[in-house]
Every structure is written in C-alpha cells, then in structure tokens.
Amino acid sequence: MTLLALADVTKSFGGVTAVGGLSFTVRPRHVVGLMGPNGAGKTTIINLISGLLHPDAGTIRLGGQPVTRARPHEIAGGGLARTYQNVRLISGMTALEQVIVGSYLRRGTSLLASILHLPAARAAARATRADAMDLLARVGMADRADTLAETLSYGEQRRIEIARALASQPKLLLLDEPTAGMNAAESAEIGRLVHALRDDGLTVLMVEHNMRLVADFCEHVVVMNFGRKIAEGPPAACIADPAVQEAYFGKQRDAQRHRA
C-alpha cells in the first residue's frame, strides 16, 4: 500500500545530474523525512513530484496513478499540495486571502454563479472563508488574518504557506524545509502540527535538515547525496549510518584533520 512511488527517477540540468536514478515510496498516513546536504537534489525531487519539472527518465505514481508527465494543476487535483523552500506567498494578498486561494480546488461553485454572486456562490464563499479562518487558527495565525502577508515575519509567512497548502485538503503534503529560519521552539511547534495532521489522515513528505526534528517527528527517512539515495529507514538508524555521517560531517572532519 503506497501513496507515492518514485521509480528510477532521473533529472539533469545541462551537465549537472540533480537526481540520478532515485527510487522510494511513501506510505499513507506516514511522515517521511527527506534529508541530504546542500545541493543533494531534495528541492528537485519536490519539484518533480509536484510536476513543475518532468523527469528525464523514471516514473512517479501518486495514489497508483502515473503522474510522470502530468501538469502541476492536474497533480494538485489528484490530491497533492506543497510549500516552498523560499516562501512564495502571493504579493498583495492578506493572510486570509492566501488561504482562500489555496482552496481553489474546493471552490464548489460555477464560474457564472460566482460572478453573478448568486446565493449558492455566496454560501460557498462564506464556507470557504470560515474554513480558511480555521486553518489560520490551526497554524496559530488567526489574529493576523487581515494583515498583508508580505509584511509578516518569515516564520509567520511559512505558517501561512502551510495553511494555504492545507486549504485544498490534500492527501499528500510536501514541505520543503518548513522550519528553515525558525528557532527550536517554533520548529517543535511545526513538528507537532505535522503529527496532528498525520493523525487526521494526511501523509507528509518533508525536507528537513534538523536531525533532532527528523528523529522526533518522522517515521521514515530517505537520505540522499549528489542525487542518489545513500540511506533509507527509521530515523535513528539513518542518522547513525556512516554514509550519512560522512555526507553531512565528512567535509568538516576533513577540514579539521587538515588544520590539525
């Protein structure tokens, strides 16, 4: 039983092989961590899954359906939502509006009804708004609903982005470094949110550098380096894996040895 399956996925940019023959699967209602040093190809994987990039070779399946060549909005329609490594909120919109856009897929009214402001469309809009408020509350941003999102702090923007991704009620959520730039307490907050979401039935694939967080909140980890998988399994075992240690700390050790 898998929700997401990558098989031999390869992607190169010019001469750089960002992802080379990567395979892994994600089971439903699991929190899976994707780790790897800078430039390992993690964001490329996220872009490939969400359809912004297409693999040169290999297949990607979402819920059993092949989505290798599908366009991003089709994949989103299939139950995928994501956030970005460098937050990408929509300029000029309030926090609440960001989340409302995120619920585009669940708009529930026809275009004409919406333009003519028919009672049904108004009711749907009210419901969307209420749901969006709930989501903002869930990420702890309810009091900022009417603030222009670009004026908020980085951490706050990240949380709004998560709320926006949740607004489409996805089956699979991709988080690209959701805790970057957050302190330990805020990071743990995100971890708890991810757990709560999983308990509600969501599946999460998250890119995360923070090993504490990965160890505490992920059930399964995939570690990559130079576009290839170097370890996979339970967090503790992966982090202890010599190959992973080498990938993350090898350079530092080399440097220390040089200095010594």
Binding site: H73, I90, R164
Partner: peptide
C-alpha cells in the same frame, strides 16, 4: 470578486505557485 478574479491574481503574481494550487 469571483473565483476567476482570485485565481487570475495568483496566476499573474506567480504562475508556478498558482498551478501547484490546482489552478490551470
């Protein structure tokens, strides 16, 4: 004010973000 307007704003400001939210 309609769905179209909201989606159009998203497409205009950041097309690739908009598509990832399911907007064609």
């Amino acid at each position: 004010r309609s769905w179209y307007g909201i989606a159009a704003r998203a497409v205009r400001e950041d097309t690739s973000v908009a598509t990832c939210m399911g907007i064609d």
